[in-house]
């Protein structure tokens, strides 16, 4: 299992566009990828837009990505990079 924490930097939170980016990146991997929101413990399946959007993660929120499966290391790396570079 791999995990990392990302603090939402986008001032309007994880809306459709960033959620779509996460989902598309996550879909590239076979590993199970769960996103857990710290404030209320809500979890989302990173491969489903619906699920990620319903987290309603706002700016400053801490999200933990929990990744498990064969390609977990690569998935963790790719998602971390996406969060830091593409989501701001």
């Amino acid at each position: 299992m791999e995990s990392f924490v990302y603090r939402v930097a986008d001032k309007v939170g994880i809306h459709a566009r960033p959620a779509g980016k996460i989902v598309n990146a996550a879909k590239e991997f076979s590993a199970d990828i769960i996103i857990r929101k710290k404030s209320d413990g809500k979890e989302a399946d990173a491969k489903r837009l619906f699920s990620v959007m319903s987290l309603a993660a706002s700016c400053g929120e801490e999200l933990t990505f929990i990744i498990s499966g064969e390609d977990e290391a690569a998935a963790a790396l790719a998602l971390k990079k996406l969060c830091e570079e593409a989501l701001g």
């Binding site: 309007v12 939170g13 809306h15 459709a16 619906f50 959007m53 319903s54 309603a56 706002s58």
Partner: peptide, 14 residues
């Protein structure tokens, strides 16, 4: 209705 975005502009429906 599964969710209404905080900014009230997006609605998810199953």
């Amino acid at each position: 209705v599964m969710g209404v975005a905080e900014a009230k502009h997006a609605y998810s429906i199953f």
